[in-house]
Amino acid sequence: MGKVRLENIRLYAFHGCLKEEGVIGSDYRVDLEVTADLEKASVTDQLADTVDYVTLHRIVQLEMDLRSHLLETVGARILDRIFKEVEGVSAAEVSISKINPPIGGDVQQVTVVLSKTR
């Protein structure tokens, strides 16, 4: 078994419950870790035998582009799509952080972490 991590994916998106968040948008950070059997790929040196991180990145981008009120909803969509489209993934964890959230205080970011297993 092994892990593939995509760290500090930086995106601009329009999530949030406030109407203004859907218009103005915010900066986001996404971290993703998937667990899969990477032994075959370590021997064959073939992309087809591993989890393609380009595919994982594309999934994150596409799901972050779909506006939601809650980061929990976005995270669940990302995990569901990974398990639907990427064979061999046995577990995944996604962290979505909203940078400088509009909560009336000096907060660097808020983060939601979700995980799923097959």
Rank of each mutant, 00 (worst) to 15 (best):
M1H: 12
L18Y: 12
E39S: 14
E20N: 07
Q108F: 15
V107H: 12
R118T: 09
L79S: 02
I9C: 09
V51H: 03
M64Y: 01
L62I: 11
V51W: 00
I82K: 01
E39G: 14
L47K: 03
I99W: 11
E87Q: 13
V4D: 02
E20D: 12
N8Q: 14
R118E: 07
Q109P: 08
Q108Y: 15
E93Q: 11
E85K: 06
K98T: 14
T117E: 15
I24P: 04
L32N: 04
R118G: 05
G22S: 07
L56Y: 01
R77F: 04
L38I: 08
V89D: 03
R118N: 12
V23P: 05
E20V: 10
V30L: 00
E87A: 13
D27T: 01
V43L: 12
I9Y: 02
D31Y: 07
I103K: 07
S90C: 09
T50Y: 00
K3C: 05
T73V: 10
S42Y: 13
G16E: 04
Y28R: 01
V23S: 02
S26M: 08
P102Q: 02
E93K: 14
S115T: 06
V112C: 08
G2F: 10
S115I: 02
L56N: 04
R58I: 00
D27S: 15
S42A: 15
I59M: 05
H15S: 05
V107Y: 11
K3P: 03
G22N: 06
V110Q: 09
L79F: 00
G105V: 09
V94Q: 08
R10H: 08
E72V: 09
E33T: 11
E33S: 09
K84D: 10
L70T: 12
V34G: 00
V4R: 00
G75L: 07
G104R: 05
G88Y: 02
K116V: 02
V43E: 12
Y12G: 12
S68N: 12
A76G: 09
E87V: 11
R29S: 11
F14D: 08
V54T: 12
E63V: 09
V43K: 13
Q46I: 14
V86N: 05
G2W: 10
K3M: 03
S26Q: 15
L114Q: 06
G25A: 04
L70A: 08
L62N: 10
E7H: 04
T50L: 00
T117L: 01
D65H: 06
A48V: 03
N100P: 06
T73S: 11
E7N: 11
I99L: 13
C17G: 04
Q108E: 15
L47G: 06
F83N: 01
Q61M: 10
Q46T: 13
L71K: 00
R29C: 09
I78F: 05
I96M: 01
S42R: 15
V89I: 01
N100M: 14
L11I: 13
L66W: 09
E72H: 04
D31A: 08
I9E: 04
K3Y: 09
D31T: 04
I24A: 07
I78R: 07
N100F: 14
G25C: 11
